[in-house]
Amino acid sequence: MLLSNTEEIPGQQIREFYGVVTGSTVRAKHIGRDLMAGLKNLVGGELKGYTELLHEARGEAIDRMAEQARSIGANAVVNVRFSTSSVAQGAAELFAYGTAVRVE
């Protein structure tokens, strides 16, 4: 599955167009990570636990989007966009969306 945030996949021709595909996941951080992050909030710097958590979650959202694209016969998703929203205390939704196409 080819992914790109440009309108087309450079070096390839779009043959078929399938419309918008989406993938999302809502994640909450677990208590251990939260405690560590609380400490980190004191000294400053990168909150590695959260970076990893969001990285994994975003990967999951992309996978779900790609899966949806595959199921309708696409082999690429162009114009991929991301959005993050905190839906509840300590939980965030990671959302990926794009346009499914078939390229050659």
Binding site: L2, S4, P10, G44, G45, E46, T51, L54
Partner: peptide, 28 residues
Amino acid sequence: GRRVPTPWRVTDAGLVAGSVVISLDYFK
């Protein structure tokens, strides 16, 4: 921009990303 300014023959393309979560210290 959407493409490199000079014409390139592109053989492969793919999504790349990098992220970081960072926080301020108590003093700041």
